[in-house]
């Protein structure tokens, strides 16, 4: 029955007189900013993300990452955090950090089903997750969700800490997708761009953060040089 409707609609469309191939513009769009070396991209990312109300940190290695997070959770009085420990977050010794700071950390890999994920995400004060890429052109995070990384964490918690490896800082969305597809051999499910915290201006054009998603977004750019042997590739 439904296949009929589809065939009918396509048949009608095909019957229309058409002008033929229309593409007149080829190639990549003019890049949206300077092709950067790493320092340039860090600067650009920081500028763009900050302009959207994001706090951007830089940490070299797990220890500094722990320090940055400790300072932030203390400043914001965060007591309960749901954490996805995969990706760049794995640089952090989560168990030790939880003990040291006294923050109750729920490791999302232990959440058994949808109900448990909902419970953890909707009741946490904050979420800690990796991001697959950071895009300098607009200060955007790119996240691909999978069995290790749940979607609800970074949208339901009132604050979101995202850790991204500095090697995964790229200039453009195209570059992020190319590398994502190579890394994951195609993508299924959801890929999400996050640019700044949740916001709205729908009543009287009065803007405020944290409409449905997090009111606060902090990004930690993690230097991963320590993971690479000196001189190696």
């Amino acid at each position: 029955m439904n296949g009929d409707a589809g065939r009918e609609i396509l048949e009608l469309l095909r019957r229309a007189p058409r002008a033929g191939p229309h593409r007149t513009i080829q190639g990549r769009p003019a890049s949206s900013g300077v092709e950067g070396d790493r320092a340039g991209m860090v600067l650009r990312f920081t500028e763009e993300a900050s302009s959207q109300g994001v706090t951007v940190h830089r940490a070299s290695g797990g220890q500094e990452l722990a320090q940055v997070l400790t300072a932030s959770v203390r400043a914001q009085g965060i007591r309960r955090m749901v954490a996805c420990a995969s990706g760049a977050v794995s640089a952090l010794d989560l168990g030790r950090w939880a003990v040291e700071t006294g923050v109750e950390v729920v490791d999302s890999s232990r959440l058994g089903d949808r109900g448990a994920v909902r419970e953890a995400a909707f009741t946490a004060d904050a979420a800690l997750t990796p991001a697959d890429f950071a895009v300098a052109e607009s200060g955007t995070l790119v996240m691909a969700f999978d069995s290790d990384h749940q979607r609800l964490l970074s949208v339901a918690a009132p604050a979101h800490f995202a850790v991204v490896a500095i090697d995964d800082l790229v200039m453009s969305y195209e570059e992020a997708f190319e590398r994502l597809l190579r890394r994951r051999k195609g993508f299924a499910g959801q890929v999400c761009f996050i640019t700044g915290p949740s916001s709205t201006s729908d009543i009287q054009a009065v803007q405020f953060k944290g409409m449905h998603g997090p009111a606060r977004l902090e990004v930690i750019l993690l230097d991963t040089c320590e993971r690479k042997p000196a001189g190696g590739l």
Binding site: V117, S138, S147, G189, Q190, V191, F193, T195, G213
Partner: peptide, 20 residues
């Protein structure tokens, strides 16, 4: 430059995903 959230969904949640 980019809206707050842009989601790209290729099919339902993947194997092993607990939400979506």
């Amino acid at each position: 430059k980019m809206s707050g959230y842009v989601t790209f969904d290729s099919g339902p949640a993947g194997r092993g995903e607990k939400d979506g």
